[in-house]
Design a protein around this nucleic acid. Structure first.
Ligand code: FES
Ligand code: FES
Lengths: 145, 145
DNA sequence: ACAATAAAAGATATTTATATCTTTTATTGT
DNA sequence: ACAATAAAAGATATAAATATCTTTTATTGT
């Protein structure tokens, strides 16, 4: 596992893809998403169902249905996706696994970890779901391979 | 899971504890380590066996035996423990799970991730296993609860 | 040599994360 | 109403991480 769970990696890649693909108001199906972000289709379906229930993404069933993002969702910080999938532990938990992280009774790495964690959090809170749409269109950044 | 695997968290806490407890040349047994870092004894035993095989820590069997750290081990950077247990993926892998991380074909988060990752790596490479011995003695930092 | 000690190694169990397949429900166009 | 579509939900399956228990091996002091 990397810094995020595999589930969360798929979620973020999918959300970026949906943002790019539906900026024009259309919808995109699970199959197409899975192919384009290189994820197992049925597993991704579960993940997106969950994100949909939580209101992080939108979906409609039936013909011409699929997943999309409304204006509010497009503007969300990426940290909302991370929190929804992995929980906020990555922003709050002790890096050495102590039951609680605090400056009273800190672990040896507390000070340094706090810095790294805060940087990560600031980064993910300042990135929006839609901000890479153009770079994705231009192929400057990619979501697979 | 946090930024490291549970296995790795136990490993780091154990290594810090062994460093502090054996700075005087003595050894410390698995039971005592497990109690003091609040980890499952037998599981930790496996982890330390592995670290011992890899030369990250030292051990002797029999009466008055136990785990300890030689001068070389005491001076190791903490990153060596992380690499031994979790592999170096945390320092190298794409944050979004792409098969390879590179500035050719970067994922959307590549630039920002690189920064966070490098900070983490620099931090772990500049911390030595023994550098918290005194703070641990003084109770300024802790390895459990 | 012997008994005691403590880690190493082996075998197995449990839990969690990841993945797949099937059935159901909502929506759309005819 | 009906047929087609696509997500939602449910039921399993597989793999990996975490955990426990038992047996073996090396070392020490007597
Ligand atoms: S106590 Fe460990 S990171 Fe804060
Ligand atoms: S390609 Fe994703 S972090 Fe480098």
């Amino acid at each position: 596992m990397g810094i995020f769970s595999k589930t969360c990696e798929y979620a973020v890649r999918a959300v970026f893809f949906i943002a790019q693909r539906t900026a024009d108001g259309s919808r995109v199906g699970i199959k197409e998403i899975a192919v384009n972000i290189d994820s197992p289709e049925h597993f991704l379906a579960k993940i997106l169902q969950d994100l949909s229930r939580r209101g992080i993404i939108q979906s409609v069933k039936g013909p011409n249905g699929g997943f999309y993002l409304d204006a509010q969702s497009l503007a969300r910080p990426l940290s909302d996706v991370i929190e929804a999938v992995d929980g906020g532990g990555i922003f709050r938990d002790c890096g050495l696994g102590l039951k609680e992280c605090s400056s009273k009774n800190p672990c040896p790495l507390h000070h340094d970890f706090l810095d790294v964690r805060n940087r990560l959090q600031n980064m993910l809170e300042s990135i929006t779901i839609s901000q890479f749409n153009e770079d994705l269109n231009l192929g400057i950044v990619v979501l697979k391979k």
